[in-house]
Simulated scan of single mutants.
Amino acid sequence: MEDGYGAHAPDRLADRPVKGRGAVSNRDGRYEALSHDAVDDGWGSGGDGIDPDFPPPKLRTSIGIDAARSIITKNDSPDVPFDRSINPYRGCEHGCVYCFARPTHAYYGLSPGLDFESKLFWKPNAAHLLEKELSRKGYRPRTISIGTNTDPYQPIEREKRSMRAILEVLADFRHPVSIVTKSALVLRDLDILGPMGRDGLARVSISITTLDRHLANVMEPRASTPGRRLDAIQGLAAAGVPTSVMTAPIIPGLTCHEAEAILKEAAARGAGGAGYVMLRLPLEIAGLFEEWLAAHAPDRKDRVLKLVREMRGGKLYDARWGERMRGTGAYAETFRQRYRIATRRFGLDKPLGELDCSRFHRPPRPGDQMALF
């Protein structure tokens, strides 16, 4: 190709998978005025712009501060069964290539690609903010969902312990909480979740996309292995925590055939319920997912995208309420029937029930006046 002066411009280099990361590229977000491409300047001895004597630097995770002024996020979406949630972290090191939260990084001038899983932000004052919000006079308790955006038990939680601190506050206030995670690290907090679960104040959903360890390793590279997630279901259920399995997302033509096997294994470990979400590809995720298919499943790329379009009215994504989570058309309906039959067969078709908001109370703090009666 030629540049603006008629000279031959360098060829764009193809993006290559990064070991231990989900996204293949770091494509610019939709709000950026400029786009950036790596090009072959001719210095690479291999003819592909890569010099084996000077490999690219390893992509390391950085952690910044999110100076949030509030911690509980409200929503009125008819597609989800909760109206409030908490996200202890922005970005997620698990690196799930299909993660629908990736486009949020574009709001901060970062890429929904590799930036999303390597440039993370934590909220050091999360527990303090939560305590403050729950203590407000007009606060009315309803179940708080955690893990519906980014995973609260991603690897940096081992060091930062934001989720642990949040759970301590919720337990102190006897406030109900629902958790979704892909991490066996949730078992660390059984000393809190066990008593809360037995009191009707906590439940956990473990997300399992595939039982294929190799596929999981390239699709969600820093999440717990499928086996460890099954162990988490078993540990939670044994501790008295109502536990379900989320087969999410269902990827047509890639993981859809595993649904029954996942449900069977989860039921055997003690799961009491199940749910699924069809693959969603909003905004930048569509391009990132296509890149990933080309790199890791080129033989199935066309088939997967064809099935996605069949469920989304000919597009890669349809954002309409009531349809974006399940899809429409023959394929989506056939899968829905399959899933309904499988959940019934394995005893996972019964709702876990509502959590108990009646136990909520504001614990006394130093300086509070004691009640006489």
Rank of each mutant, 00 (worst) to 15 (best):
A223Y: 08
M311S: 06
K123W: 00
M1Q: 14
W43G: 12
H94R: 03
K58L: 08
A202E: 04
D66F: 06
P103Q: 14
G270D: 03
E260P: 01
D37T: 15
A319D: 12
G147M: 08
R174V: 05
E159S: 12
A216N: 12
S207K: 09
N87E: 10
P366V: 05
T210S: 15
I50Q: 12
R203K: 15
R84N: 13
P252G: 12
L170Q: 07
T243R: 02
K264N: 11
E258Y: 02
R84W: 05
Y108K: 13
V97S: 00
G20C: 01
L372C: 09
R303N: 05
E258P: 03
S118N: 13
D231G: 03
L170N: 07
M196L: 07
R362M: 01
C99P: 01
E168P: 03
R309S: 07
F173P: 01
M278D: 03
R320D: 07
A237G: 08
R161L: 09
T328Q: 15
T328D: 12
I86M: 00
I233H: 00
T73A: 10
W122A: 00
N26P: 06
L167A: 04
T334P: 06
D191S: 09
A330Y: 09
G227C: 08
T343N: 09
K132V: 00
R102M: 11
F121G: 00
A126H: 01
A266Y: 02
L236D: 02
A271T: 04
D79I: 05
L190E: 00
D189L: 00
S183V: 03
A294F: 03
K350R: 14
G113M: 09
S207D: 08
D191M: 04
P252K: 06
E265Y: 08
L34W: 15
S145P: 05
L263T: 08
L190N: 00
K137I: 14
D53S: 11
R222L: 11
S178L: 13
L352F: 04
L187I: 02
K182L: 10
P282K: 11
F121K: 05
H128E: 08
R300K: 11
G109P: 10
K301I: 00
V39T: 14
P364M: 06
G275Y: 13
V304T: 09
G314N: 05
G353D: 00
R326Y: 13
N149D: 15
L211K: 05
S183E: 09
H257M: 11
P112H: 10
P81D: 10
G322Y: 07
D79E: 04
N149F: 15
H128P: 00
P55Y: 04
G44I: 03
G95R: 06
P10H: 07
A268N: 09
G47L: 07
T61G: 01
V308Q: 10
C96F: 09
L110S: 13
W122T: 01
I208L: 11
I72T: 01
P221A: 01
D51F: 03
A268K: 13
E284Y: 11
D318M: 07
D28S: 15
V218K: 02
A223W: 08
Q154W: 07
R324L: 13
M325A: 12
A33T: 14
Q337I: 15
P155G: 11
E265W: 07
E290D: 11
P103F: 13
D66E: 08
L288M: 12
A297K: 04
